[in-house]
Design a protein around this nucleic acid. Sequence first.
DNA 1: CGTCCACTTGATGGGCATCAACCGAAGTGG
DNA 2: CCACTTCGGTTGATGCCCATCAAGTGGACG
Lengths: 257, 257
Amino acid sequence: MRSFGIGGGLEKQRCDNCPIRDWALCSTLESPAALALSTIANFKHFPAGQVLQCSHTDPSWYAVIVAGVVKLAKTLADGRQQIVGLQFPADFLGRPFAASSAFQAEATTSLLLCCFPKNDFEAVMEEHPCLEGALLRRTLDQLDTARDWMFTLGRKTAQERLASLLFVIAERLVPASGSSPSDEGTLTFDLPLSRIDMADCLGLTHETVSRELHELKEKGVIATRGRRTFILPDPAALEHLAKGAEAVTNSDSLAGS
Amino acid sequence: MRSFGIGGGLEKQRCDNCPIRDWALCSTLESPAALALSTIANFKHFPAGQVLQCSHTDPSWYAVIVAGVVKLAKTLADGRQQIVGLQFPADFLGRPFAASSAFQAEATTSLLLCCFPKNDFEAVMEEHPCLEGALLRRTLDQLDTARDWMFTLGRKTAQERLASLLFVIAERLVPASGSSPSDEGTLTFDLPLSRIDMADCLGLTHETVSRELHELKEKGVIATRGRRTFILPDPAALEHLAKGAEAVTNSDSLAGS
DNA sequence: CGTCCACTTGATGGGCATCAACCGAAGTGG
DNA sequence: CCACTTCGGTTGATGCCCATCAAGTGGACG
């Protein structure tokens, strides 16, 4: 599906089949701009763990995520690391108007990107100002997301942070993959992060992540199958925990099973 | 200076005198767009502590800060609060493309804003797409700032956080007010925040802020005159502390003065 | 001069980091 | 097929950083 050749018509057809065409940047553009983008787009695959860009060597392209998850992280010389953003399918990758990004982007799962050569993309942007408008809307959303996360990092307990992370990821991942919403509100999804990644998202250690996951399981708000598959029997309860409500009163101390 | 009347020519003149005209949004616009903005602009004053907008009642205008500092904060029902952004002179205020902002904006000092009625501003934005481009650039910068701060909240110690905050504020405030850079690199500025505000920026308590400020004074990287005036004898040393370098070796234990 | 408020300083404890051991799954090589 | 290693993850023991509770200080202001 990604070796379709180079003809304009085929590009167009590729967009028609695109799984994210209704949510991505291009979906909100006027059609001439969308068409211009489609002619410069090409798909790229990356394996999990691949570094996409880093502070000093920027790639020569922008991209929209078609499938997979990307983490944006900042690392200090002494090894401290913080993940400052998670990018999901339909999200935009790249930092316009800057020679280089201050953060490192890395694939946390295997990845399919719809890439646009940097120069070509900027040419389209000059030609079609509506592209800047579309980017502005997405950037404002990202800013809101980042600021919400700042609250999580600054003021929530370890358990609330875990609940917040799981809830946010479930929200982004479940509608995309049609993961059986059959069971009366139960959500199931594959977490695109290792325990260490989770810790780096949350400003915690991986040991604490492990312990608090255990706690959440005993409270019954999450369950797991294997190391990556998470089941939320009652997403509302998880959200409640995430928003900072210590409401559990009695089911709290039946831990000794 | 703010009671100049309503004539178009006077508006223009007002812009000529504007102290931030070389840094604000309008400075990067093509001249017809800048002119269109100038005709809908009007100044407003606010006292320190005034709430400008909150989650459910948005103001009917956007604004550029002419003088003063604004904090953006998120508060939980149980009282936990986190400041998620500080806006300085020349920064833009408001959340385009959303019915309401998720955060509360409050003046931390007395404030002078250059306001644009919401509908008028959006009309100018449709007429002049370069305005969206200018907003995009600023929003991307804000996003970088927010993500840098996420690292501070997630991974730095209390002292490093304090150093980071003071350094960031000094960077923004010192070039604006021409505060004597006479003394060989020494920087002086008035902190636009109370101790509680500082704590809410940093995810700490005000007691910890107080103690760590004391520590920084003993280390000699800061000095204070009164409660709001801060002196940085060696900004580079402060930056060093902020970036996470525990380099102080001997001058650490001469506390008993 | 008394009250208030922002701030400071002190005493204590808890939440999470740190250090360490262990476990199980996935290679790797004989 | 089975030792051996590696790596992500879990569990346990201990300690420290910072929150919490509490009291004290000093400037502003009526």
